[in-house]
Amino acid sequence: MIAYIVRRILYAIPILIGVNILTFVLFFVVNSPDDMARMNLGMKRVTPEAIENWKAERGYDKPLLFNSASQGVGQVTDTIFFQKSLKLFQFDFGTSDSDRDIGYDISQRMWPSLAIAVPVLLIGLLVNITYALLIAFFRATYIDIWSVVLCVVMMSISGLFYIIGGQYLVSKLLHLMPISGYDTGFAAVKFLILPVLIGVVGGIGSGTRWYRTLFLEEINRDYVRTARAKGLSEGIVLFRHVLKNAMIPILTGVVVVLPLLFMGSLITESFFGIPGLGSYTIDAINRQDFAIVRAMVFLGSVLYIIGLLLTDISYTLVDPRVRLS
């Protein structure tokens, strides 16, 4: 088991290097050191000397990938790529255009992101599974058909509409919750209810439909038929057998997304003014603060790979046969 996990972790390293090279190429083509200097130095009265100064000071005056002026190893190490990009592996993200340490900001901003993403996931899971079980119970009746249609209808509404509509209704017309904002500690709950609610409602359509398919797949298996033949009531069959067995795909599906919860939700966070990583990313894109975007790309990739790893591990835990392959 341990050997397997180690092997998987080792496998992740070349992927991360690949991601690193790719993002480096993408972002340094887009955003030359000159652009970075200009963004940092502001708009008014910027002289070319100031830009050269800035670059020299931060080591952006070096060549991108290969330094022919240096000797020996220096030809590779004395470059922007080596100095800036590889530091990401130590989770040293450098500073943003506004001279803030990105690592510090990320460590501060991931908590609000989690405060939204975790409740949305858990409550969503509970609601969706409950509805899906109910629909599975009434399968092949009109309730089933219309529920599925309802799910499809809910899926077909753009997520932006849920947010705009929800804010308008709950905060502006009914005065029940603050429109947007955030606070630290317990006081944050007040600001979280609405985005969480909207997140859950927006996910009901696709979630319920997906779990329904999972349950239906289980219901048609032989052991369920056997159980029913034994005279067990439908409720017991659904709960004891179907739900228990469908739990495996459900949980492994959840495990994949767990690490990505840290990344936050882009749209929700910026609409509700929640200072999480999602709004951090959006801001960075809009202000073209590429140091932040690059850090987030790297972080996202690491988390994705951790997710894959966790899934593999959870599979082996649930189903020992997988380990053999």
């Binding site: 509970l126 409950t130 904002g181 006081a187 709950v189 007040k190 209810i193």
Partner: peptide, 30 residues
């Protein structure tokens, strides 16, 4: 069934009252 329906709404209402105290401040005060 109920678990996902009305208690959720009830819970939200209770939370709101809890968070806002009684009459001290408007509910949607940020």
């Amino acid at each position: 069934t109920v678990g996902s329906g009305w208690p959720a709404a009830g819970l939200i209402a209770m939370l709101l009252i809890l968070l806002n105290g009684c009459g001290e401040r408007a509910w949607n005060a940020p």
